Simulated assay, not measured.
Amino acid sequence: MKMSNYFKVLILCLLAVASTQAQLQLGFYTYSCPSAEQIIQNFVHEHIHNAPSLAATLIRMHFHDCFVRWCWFETLECASFKGCDASILLNSTNKQAEKDAPPNLTVRGFDFIDRIKSLVEAECPGVVSCADIIALSARDSIAATGGPYWKVPTGRRDGVISNLVEARNSIPAPFHNITVLQTLFGNQGLDLKDLVLLSGAHTIGISLCTSFSNRLYNFTGKGDQDPSLDSEYAENLKTFKCKNINDNTTIVEMDPGSRKTFDLSYYNQVVKRRGLFESDSALLNNPVTKALVTQLLHGSLENFYAEFAKSIEKMGQIKVKTGSQGEIRKHCAFVNS
């Protein structure tokens, strides 16, 4: 029996997606734009110390960009698979884009990326993708503020589709439990170890109260508090930070007292039941993730950096476009006309 066209296209698409990852390479712009990576690094180093919190938001942007997936099977066009393709940067047009999805409403740094893009375009018009700029600036900002350094093979091309619904459905949320987190990470070819390590980026993050205030005031809809959250910590948050459930302006550190340092302190908070989000607490609700947290705490900072680097390098290659796929946008917020 002949295989249907649907499944033929599906297999071809999956093979194409797998092959694109191998086409990324270190120093991709060595001949086409030899100064590209230095331009990006110089800009980051020049400005990140004036706004060190951008390191957290740029790595979050990279994460949110890579986690969105899409394939329009109705027209059998698997070429529109999306991953790390800078689709998070596109503005909404006749359809709402990822940028306007609830998980991305608090993402910042778009202007920062645009400024880098303008510098690179002035040097090498139409050569360096917005997707590579996101990946490189995330790495450079973390390294510039004292965090880990990792390899960023380049050659990504930019996508032309950005869909609010896909971002809403694909990006892990603060309220997700371990089962949902495992599924969403698994959808992207990431495992539980990657989940634990990439969650470690919360060591430099901040959050608005509304992202977790239900844990303080209305966890099950009965005006109760999340029992998995340390009671002393919860009381402190209610007294000094999030004084009501609707507070959407107060900022809270994800890793109190250590949010400017990329270290193991976040995992200490998790073990003490002081992880700010339900997704942080969820790491204790699976024997594998719990054991991994313990292993990291018993290891060295250097080991954490090395393991984190492996996971984020892996994440940065999710469903990338290379070769003739996608395009090199002239402006990161718009597809080329």
Rank of each mutant, 00 (worst) to 15 (best):
K330C: 00
A97Y: 05
P52N: 12
L301D: 14
H176C: 00
G155D: 02
T183P: 00
H47V: 08
K272V: 00
K330A: 10
P52E: 12
P103T: 03
L276F: 09
A56G: 13
N104Y: 04
Y6H: 13
Q23R: 12
A282F: 03
E313Y: 06
V288G: 00
E77L: 06
F73C: 05
K260C: 03
K193F: 02
I113F: 10
K238Q: 15
P174N: 08
L164H: 10
L276D: 10
G205Y: 03
H47T: 15
F334K: 14
L192S: 08
I59W: 06
V44L: 11
W72R: 09
W72T: 15
A16I: 00
T210L: 08
T20K: 01
M61W: 03
T220C: 01
G155E: 03
I251R: 11
N50P: 02
R69M: 04
A36V: 04
S19R: 13
Y266Q: 09
L15K: 07
I39D: 14
I178V: 09
P287R: 08
I113G: 03
E313N: 10
T203Q: 15
I318H: 13
Q96H: 06
G146F: 02
G186M: 03
C13I: 01
N187W: 08
T294C: 02
R69Q: 11
Q317L: 03
R115Q: 15
F7H: 13
F112N: 07
P287A: 06
H45V: 08
F175A: 14
L89P: 05
T93N: 09
F67Q: 08
V107A: 13
I88P: 01
T250K: 07
W150L: 08
L136V: 14
D158Q: 04
G221V: 05
A234P: 09
F28P: 00
K8L: 15
V320Q: 01
F219V: 05
Y6W: 13
S118R: 11
T93W: 01
N5Q: 14
H298E: 15
I204S: 06
R60Y: 14
H202C: 02
E235L: 14
P287I: 11
R115F: 01
V17L: 13
R274H: 08
D230P: 01
L292K: 09
Y6Q: 14
